[in-house]
């Protein structure tokens, strides 16, 4: 792959001065690929954690205990009404300063890396939105449909797994798509705690090589691509799972 594109971009640089160094310099290419990999992993784990938190939170919101409901409620408000960047800094610097480190033979490394803190922070931030989405999805399953299941002898658990959950998930999906795409964009903030994802890597590349416009273009294209792919995949899932006859 690299051998294939390298001559073209080297030529492009020599002819026009457009310096897409990540496509012809092996070292920079390695950085670039590592950046993509970290960035995609960051997106994947953040979205996953936010979904898990969303599901658990939605369950708790429907629980009988007012204390639990209050806690989840407070969590949602706290994380929705404060800047995600300060949340990230708080997790990484303030809480990170008090997590133990391990001796890696000569140097110490905190148990929780900046990458993991970013995942935790974005997961919790995105989760605050997902709780509401899943809860609304559960609430939107009509009581009467559940009654029908009950009168057909479904037990509570059978109703939950065969009727409530499949319906709630489908109902939630469009709202979820929006939120997950937003969260994927937000992960670029990991730059501030030096997680070597795309924004951070290209920043280093353009500082080293003074080719800001070219790398900026690349960064733009990268996010457009990632956001488009994610949205396309989720929309495809939506279309596959749409309740026939109840489509948009």
């Amino acid at each position: 792959m690299f051998e294939l594109i390298a001559p073209f971009f080297r030529h492009l640089y020599e002819r026009t001065g457009l310096n897409f160094i990540v496509f012809y310099d092996p070292h920079e290419f390695g950085r670039f690929v590592a950046g993509i990999s970290i960035s995609l992993q960051l997106i994947f784990w953040s979205l996953l954690l936010s979904l898990v938190i969303g599901v658990v939170g939605a369950w708790t919101q429907r629980s009988q205990s007012a204390i639990w409901r209050g806690c989840v409620h407070a969590y949602i408000q706290a994380f929705r009404n404060t800047p995600p960047m300060i949340q990230l800094l708080f997790f990484y610097f303030a809480l990170g300063a008090f997590t133990p480190s391990v001796d890696m033979g000569g140097y110490t490394q905190p148990i929780i890396s900046s990458f993991v803190w970013a995942v935790i922070s974005f997961g919790i931030f995105g989760g605050a939105f997902n709780v509401e989405i899943f809860r609304a999805g559960l609430d939107a399953v009509p009581e009467s449909t559940l009654e029908a299941a009950e009168s057909l002898c479904f037990s509570r658990w059978q109703t939950y797994t065969n009727v409530t959950l499949p319906l709630a998930f489908r109902i939630s999906l469009p709202a979820l798509t929006n939120n997950l795409v937003s969260l994927a964009k937000t992960t670029s903030l990991a730059y501030v705690i030096a997680v070597p994802e795309m924004t951070y890597v290209l920043n280093q590349v353009w500082s080293d090589n003074i080719n800001v416009p070219e790398m900026m273009l690349l960064l733009f294209l990268y996010y457009v691509l990632v956001v488009t792919l994610l949205a396309t995949a989720l929309h495809a899932l939506e279309r596959r799972l749409v309740l026939p006859g109840y489509g948009q």
């Binding site: 949602i76 009509p142 929006n178 109840y246």
Partner: peptide, 19 residues
Amino acid sequence: KRAFRLETEQFSQERFFCR
């Protein structure tokens, strides 16, 4: 036909005030 649906905009991060 409106059943089984949410008002999507209500839940996006771009409308972050929850209910």
